[in-house]
């Protein structure tokens, strides 16, 4: 059960215990973090679950596939090098302490 910290657009923080195997998006939704709207339910179709994850975590995360990269690069104006779709990140114990920044929704 990794602990995950979400930094919301208003800079407030919330730390929650995630279930192993759940996606980051699911964890946010289950914990009432409505800034992640996740319209397509997590099938990598919409890019409404955009988040930023510090590069120091890069090695512990499955890299974005072509679908995710294309959605990110073309959908969102404030895409950064550390942008990810939270529905494509599945959590394991090694992600304990992960900090996720949620940008203001563009949708």
């Amino acid at each position: 059960m990794p602990n995950i910290t979400f930094i919301l657009p208003d800079e407030s923080q919330i730390t929650v215990a995630a279930n192993d195997g759940d996606s980051l998006m699911q964890t946010a939704v289950d914990n009432g973090i409505e800034q992640i709207s996740a319209d397509c339910g997590g099938c990598c179709s919409c890019a409404t679950c955009h988040c930023f994850i510090d590069n120091s975590w890069k090695e512990k995360l499955t890299p974005a596939d072509d679908m995710e990269t294309d959605l990110l690069e073309n959908a969102i104006d404030n895409v950064q090098e550390n942008s990810r779709l939270s529905c494509q990140i599945f959590l394991a114990p090694e992600h304990d302490g992960l900090v996720v920044e949620i940008p203001e929704s563009e949708w």
């Binding site: 679908m67 294309d70 073309n74 959908a75």
Partner: peptide, 9 residues
């Protein structure tokens, strides 16, 4: 997805 996203935008 690129065509979808850009068009949607």
């Amino acid at each position: 997805p690129k065509s979808f996203m850009i068009t949607r935008k």
